[in-house]
């Protein structure tokens, strides 16, 4: 039997969505302008986008770039961050580089990257990669730095080599922190994905959105915002499920779910 309390907490995200749509609907009816369609009109435009072959190809192309940018970003950033966290030499070598790139909006690099790499997949994937990398490096670094030294000593006494300690002690004990970085990275990947497509209009979900805007198809604009938003929420929720499963051993007993998972 599900208790009343868990039922409410399960339904809360859904209620929040419905509430938001309701406010939108009422606001749009009151304002009554072309550039602000009602929630119902926008929702109605969603299926036509999702059944249009051209649009689907665009959205899938976006997702593919995002997946590659995220995957490569995470794959390189975790080892880098962990090594920075355990070695002063590695940290002081990479730190200046990261300090400089950290405050720069990655999308602002888009024009230069386009100049060098063209407007194709490579440039956009690279921007996504850059967007993902910094939070993942930072959190991996923090996680590796916080590893209890006695834990590494215990491993050393059992005969683990330095490499094995990195892989089998530093990595798992930093995992909760690493995954926090990855979660931020995932959302940033989505943001940089759309932004890159806004700048280099050629394909992708962002391309559909901004083309519709140019042509005054406001239903489509808002429908795309719903689609992209739902993608973000869905990805984040799926990632939270995965994260929770991976670090169940470290979770505090009571926590307020800050995701839709």
């Amino acid at each position: 039997m599900m208790s009343w309390r868990t039922l409410v907490s399960r339904l809360a995200p859904l209620l929040a969505c419905l509430g938001l749509l309701g406010i939108w609907q009422i606001g749009a009816l009151i304002l009554d302008t072309d550039s602000f369609p009602t929630a119902i009109d926008a929702l109605r435009a969603v299926p036509s986008i999702l059944t249009d072959k051209e649009s689907l190809i665009n959205i899938l192309a976006s997702l593919r770039r995002m997946a590659i940018g995220f995957g490569v970003g995470v794959g390189l950033s975790i080892p880098l961050g962990l090594m920075m966290g355990r070695s002063r030499a590695v940290a002081s070598f990479f730190n200046p580089l990261l300090m400089i790139t950290y405050p720069v909006p990655k999308a602002a690099l888009m024009p230069i990257i386009m100049l060098w790499l063209g407007v194709g997949d490579l440039a956009k994937t690279l921007v996504i990669f850059l967007g993902v990398s910094l939070p993942v490096v930072f959190h991996s670094f923090q996680g590796a730095r916080a590893v209890e030294e006695k834990m590494l000593w215990s491993g050393a006494a059992m005969g683990l080599s330095a490499g094995q300690r990195m892989l089998r002690i530093v990595l798992p004990s930093a995992l909760p922190e690493i995954l926090i970085g990855c979660r931020t990275g995932l959302v940033l990947a989505l943001i940089t994905m759309i932004t890159s497509e806004m700048i280099a209009r050629q394909s992708g979900a962002g391309n559909i959105l901004f083309n519709a805007l140019d042509m005054g198809q406001y239903d489509t604009v808002f429908a795309m915002i719903i689609i992209v938003g739902a993608m973000g929420i869905g990805l984040d929720a799926a990632f939270e499920q995965l994260r929770k499963r991976l670090v169940r051993w470290s979770e505090p007993r009571f926590d307020l779910p800050l995701s839709f998972s």
């Binding site: 209890e148 006494a157 798992p172 995992l175």
Partner: peptide, 20 residues
């Protein structure tokens, strides 16, 4: 010259592997 399995430490801080 370094740690080895011939000498087993038990630390005040336990230092268990929390993911195991």
């Amino acid at each position: 010259t370094g740690p080895g399995p011939d000498r087993g430490p038990v630390f005040q801080e336990f230092a268990l592997f929390p993911w195991k």
